[in-house]
Design a protein around this nucleic acid. Structure first.
Length: 402
RNA sequence: GGAGAAGUGGCCGAGUGGUUGAAGGCGGCGCCCUGCUAAGGCGUUAGGUGGGGUAAUCCCUGCCUCGAGGGUUCGAAUCCCUCCUUCUCCGCCA
């Protein structure tokens, strides 16, 4: 949710920023509905004021009140209609991108910040399907395409990866969370996943519940509706969860292997900060992710996503992309975003500032994800980085059958 | 799944149809008092939103909000309905 009052006071810059996300039109329609809404408010307020009495009315007053009331009903209905239109439009306006975010809407428009580590020289790299045990055909017979079992050493590698990330972040003061992954619609609206990315969310209509595509969804709602004491900020969490995505619109992409599946596990960082601290916090979350990838000896690069390729909630997103030898390119394995006050407005998470309650800023970022375990398999062709050995990973992933 | 009770401001907690957006307490903030500390005194302190004024972090003013949404009534925190949540008991269960 954008700051509507600020936007109508000075719409120019907001509109220009939103145009970079392709949302200038949505913004215009919102402002137009807002104008109509504000035009109706004074009349309704005036009629409501007329209905207020301090004691029992006289018979003459009663007659007058009846007349006012029917007029008021009509005015309130009109207001409610316009208000619903305005609110629906407001949900469709994304968070304006930060000035440093590049233009463009495709992956190719991302701005590369740096490359760290050297891709390995491999004559004939085997891919993760050969190096790990995923049982994709058996999974497909059970659950369909884009599912896989992690079995044996392969599973232990993944578990060690999660434990490494959870331990590291816990040591940095992030509070560990195991959240619910079945959530109501409000949690998805609150993070901006609805209505912008509705098609990618699994729904359980019998129970009015949805499967969260990331721990960001339930963790963002942890403090929904609260006014937080300022001395408790920043609040930092690290959550482990299974993530579910329909991958609608990804037909034909990454059809081979475990790169893009409907269900995966992720360790996610999440911060709530005062507004003036959120850009430093974004760098901190990125640094945490880079440390993990670096300590896993994975070659990677960092990019800034272009305005049109970010989520609706994000003002600026860094992706950490790890080298995949079987594909000969870097692939996204982490996404770190500052949603500024966008989610905080929707979820009404505030802190008590100098001049009353203000929305906090909220940030989320991948720490580690299953896809990194695939990269580990491919970059070291089955050998396991030393950092994972204390967490129960095998020194070398051996695939046994059946 | 069945039966019952309850949801009020940052927190606790009064309030069963009309000067109640809401007593009192705690916490917070300001001032005073006291070598320091502790204690004490006085005052202040819900959120949202529309409009107006100003150099303004400010002031004036309208409206909405007592879990959410509907309804009854001239008038609802208070009565009715639906939903959500919490607690107690029973049943089931990793």
């Amino acid at each position: 949710m954008i700051d509507l009052r600020a936007a109508r006071a000075d719409p120019g810059p907001v509109r220009a920023a939103l145009a970079r996300k392709g949302a200038a039109d949505a913004f215009d329609r919102l402002l137009e509905a807002d104008v109509r809404w504000r035009a109706l408010v004074p009349r309704v307020d005036e009629l409501r004021a007329k209905t207020k009495l301090k004691g029992k009315p006289t018979p003459e007053q009663l007659d007058e009140l009846q007349a006012v009331k029917s007029e008021l009903r009509a005015a309130e209905d009109a207001l409610a209609t316009v208000e619903a239109e305005r609110d629906a439009l407001a949900l469709r306006v994304p968070n304006p991108p930060h000035d440093e975010v590049p233009d463009g809407a495709s992956e190719d428009d991302a701005r590369e910040l740096r490359r760290v580590g050297e891709p390995p020289e491999l004559a004939e790299p085997r891919d993760h399907l050969e190096l790990g045990r995923f049982e994709m055909e058996r999974a497909a017979r059970m659950s369909g395409a884009r599912f896989g079992y992690w079995v044996g050493d392969t599973a232990r590698l993944a578990l060690a990866l999660y434990r490494l990330a959870l331990d590291r972040l816990s040591a940095k003061g992030f509070v560990t969370v195991l959240p619910p992954v079945l959530v109501r619609e409000a949690a998805l609206v609150g993070t901006g996943a609805f209505p912008s990315d509705e098609a990618n969310v699994y729904e359980l209509p019998e129970d009015d519940l949805y499967l969260a595509g990331t721990a960001e969804i339930p963790v963002a709602s942890l403090h929904a509706g609260e006014i937080l004491p300022v001395d408790e900020l920043p609040l930092r969490y690290v959550a482990f969860s299974t993530c579910f995505r329909r991958e609608a619109g990804a037909a034909g992409r990454d059809t081979r292997g475990m790169i893009r599946v409907h269900q995966f596990n992720k360790v996610e960082q999440f911060s709530l900060t005062p507004p003036e601290q959120s850009w430093d916090e974004l760098e901190l979350l990125l640094q945490n992710t880079e440390e993990l990838v670096h300590d896993l000896d994975l070659p990677y690069r960092v990019v800034v996503l272009p305005a049109g390729d970010m989520s609706s909630a994000s003002a600026k997103t860094y992706d950490v992309e790890v080298w995949f030898p079987s594909q000969g390119r870097y692939r996204e394995t982490a996404s770190i975003s500052n949603t500024t006050d966008f989610q905080a407005r929707r979820l009404q998470i505030r802190f008590r500032g100098q001049h009353g309650p203000e929305p906090v800023h909220m940030l989320n970022g991948t720490a580690v994800v299953d896809r990194m375990a695939l990269a580990i398999l491919e970059n070291f062709q089955g050998d396991v980085p030393a950092a994972l050995l204390p967490y129960g990973a095998p020194e070398r992933v051996i695939v046994r059958s059946p």
